[in-house]
Amino acid sequence: MTRSARSRSVTLNALIVGFLAFWLLLAIFPFFWTLWGSFKVEGDFFSKATWQNAVFGPLTLLEHGSAFTGAGYRGAWIQEEFWRSALNSLAVVVCVVVFSLSIGTLGGYALSRSTYRYAFWLLLIALVFRAMPPITLVSGYLLPFYQWNLWGHLPTAIVVLVAINQPFTLWMLTSFFRNIPKDLDESARVDGCTQFQAFRHVIIPVMWPGVITTGLFSFLLAYNDFVVTAMLLSKQNQTMIPKIASFLGTTQTEGNVMFAVSSVVSVTAPLFLLVMFFQRQIVSGLTAGAVKG
């Protein structure tokens, strides 16, 4: 690699660096711009006069006496009770990750150790399920959930998200368990363990890297979900993403958009931290299925 790097021409190097700089600008600038703008008033962030207003914030200075204001955050979190949605999101995310990993590890382990053909067919069915747009499933839930009075409650959304998450979890965990040598649990079986004891004492201690990676993606699915939570939760049980959408839906009163901008920043911040700490796991998870083919 180093040799080819040395032999690269100056033009090509400049081209590569220029292209990457352009891509990075494209990737980061929107986030930075929104973070900066979330501390302004609406007249500055959406300025008819000049874009420089969003940078220096003359109207913010006029209204709040400083070029930065937390008014958007205060309005969203306290006045509009965004904290309630944040708690709902926390409950949904934690439950979805725990439940989908618990039943997913059992199922994925079984699929990875079964030598029969139906294991293959089950994975194929899971692939088809994975391809179903969630909104088509939601339109199937609504009528029965209304009739059985299940609509609007957090547990309902949690169970639905766990189920929708299963096909992906199964695929990922099956491929992780296939990488754990079969000899491990087979030798435990020879020593007299039942299959479950072998799983409990031999597989569980070594499965955590794969489970953590899969858990990250379950987390993202639950945290980012809009379709299920928007359609199946009542207003007081709303999670963060539908709540933000409702900021936009209500009549555009002054400052309401800034509530949405500040809550968008609030929702994005945990994702930043997540990528920062778990970058390696996320990359390995994304490539797990792909690189092996």
Partner: peptide, 26 residues
């Protein structure tokens, strides 16, 4: 088969109830 079923049952029920049934329902 029996062991497989025991391990796979929870996830199978989840997918059956909340993915396969809604498709029938629609």
């Amino acid at each position: 088969h029996a062991t497989f079923l025991r391990f796979f049952l929870p996830t199978a029920i989840a997918m059956l109830l909340f993915i396969a049934m809604p498709i029938v329902s629609v």
